Amino acid sequence: MSNSQITPTDRMSQAGVLLTGSVPLYSTEEVIKYCGGGLGDVAVGIPDGEVGDRSMWIIYQAYRVLDGHPQLATIQRPQPDYNWRPSGFDDFWLFAVRDGETLHLDDIGYARTAAESYDTFRELKAAGIVPSSARFQVSLPLPESAASWFFPNPEHLRQAIDAYTTALQRELAAVLDTVPHDQLTIQWDTCWEILDVEEAAPWTLPGGEPPLERFRAMCARMSSAIPPEVLLGYHLCYGDLGHKHMKNPENLAVSVTMSNVAAESSGRPVDFVHMAVPADRADDAYFAPLQFLRPGPKPFLGLVHEHDGLEGGVLRWDAAAKFRQDFGIATECGWGRRPAWQVPALIKLHRQILEARAG
C-alpha cells in the first residue's frame, strides 16, 4: 500500500497521546528525552517543547519579530517596559502599520528553530533514547492565530494576516526541506479561528467572509502543499493565558464542525484534531456532538487534568466513549505555563489513563 493510499485511521491506529506543543523544561534536549522516552511509542509526534521565550506561544513573535519592525509602530506593550510577558488582554502587545507602508515579514523563526531541534531529535533517536517509530512534531499557528491578537485596526489586521500567510508558507516549505516526511508531524495551532467562530475574539475582520469560511479557505491554502507522508492535524484551542479559556466551550459542537471543515478543505488527509475538554465537564451534553464527527481525523480529547488525575481522566473518557470510541487523549492546551516539576507526573498520568481504558 502506498503512502497516498493509507487512511488517517491506519496511520493513527497506534497513537494514543497528543502533545500539543509547549513543555516547561529548560532545553529542547530535556523535552525530547522526557517526552520521547516516556511517550514516544504512543504519541502523534514529539515536539521540541517551545522552550524559553517561546513558552507563551505567539507572544514571542511580538517582541522578537514585530516590536521594532521598521514598518510597524508599537502602540501598547506589557508593563513595565522591560517585561515582554502580558499579564492579561488589557496588557497585551498591540501594533499598527505605519502610514504608507505595506507589511512584509522576513525570517519569523519557526523553520530555523525546527531545524535546530530536529538535529537534537535525530541524535537522541540514533542513541536509542527516543523510539525509532517516533516522529518529530512542528507546531505552527495558522495565519489568523499568528497575527490577529496584535492588530486591532481591521485594515492593518488584513495586512498582517497576508504577511503571515506568506511568511508561514515559506517557513513550512523550509521545514519540509529539512525533516524527512515520514518522520514529521505538522500541527496547525488554531486558536483565534475557533474563538472568532465562537464570537469570543476581542475583534474580528468586518464584512467579507464569515470566520468559518475564512478558516475553510485557509485550510486549503496552508495544508494542500503538505505531502501525504507527513502527519497533519489541527489543535483547536480556546486559549490558556493565565490558565483560563477566553471562552469555555458549551460543548464540542464547534470543534466538531471545524474538524469536519478542515477534513473537507485541506486538500489532503487530516490525520488528527485536538479538542478542549474543561475539567468540570464529564456530562453527555458536552460530548454528544462527537457522533457527528465525520470519518477521517482521529480526535484527541483534552481530558487529562492533573488536579483530578486518573479518576477524572477516566470519568471524562467514559463520558466521551458513549459517542465515539476511536479517540486519543491530551491535555487541554500546551504544558508551557505549568511548573517544570509537573512534567514527569503528566507523562505518567497519560500512561495511566491509556492503560486503564485503552488497554
Rank of each mutant, 00 (worst) to 15 (best):
G45Q: 03
G49N: 03
G49I: 01
V51T: 15
G52N: 11
G52M: 04
D53R: 10
D53E: 15
I59A: 00
Q61A: 03
A62N: 06
Y63K: 02
R64S: 05
V65N: 03
L66G: 01
D67V: 01
G68I: 08
G68E: 09
P70F: 05
P70C: 03
Q71P: 00
Q71K: 12
A73Q: 14
I75S: 05
R77C: 09
Q79E: 13
Q79P: 06
P80G: 13
Y82K: 07
Y82G: 15
Y82A: 15
W84L: 06
R85W: 06
S87T: 15
G88K: 00
F89W: 09
D90F: 09
D90H: 12
D91R: 06
D91G: 06
F92M: 13
W93H: 14
W93G: 05
W93V: 04
L94E: 15
F95K: 08
F95D: 08
F95S: 09
A96E: 14
V97G: 11
R98A: 02
R98W: 06
R98M: 05
R98K: 15
R98F: 04
R98Y: 04
D99V: 00
G100C: 12
T102V: 14
H104V: 08
H104Y: 10
L105Y: 14
L105V: 04
D106N: 13
D107P: 08
I108F: 03
I108W: 07
Y110L: 11
Y110R: 05
A111M: 10
T113N: 10
T113W: 13
E116G: 00
E116H: 06
S117V: 02
F121R: 02
F121V: 02
R122A: 14
R122L: 10
E123T: 14
E123F: 00
L124H: 11
A126P: 07
A126D: 15
A127C: 07
G128M: 09
G128V: 09
V130A: 09
P131F: 05
S132F: 03
S132M: 09
S132A: 15
S133V: 15
R135P: 12
F136G: 00
V138H: 08
V138P: 04
S139A: 13
L140T: 02
L140W: 06
L142D: 12
P143T: 12
E144P: 04
E144Y: 12
S145L: 01
S145A: 11
A146D: 01
A146E: 00
A146Y: 00
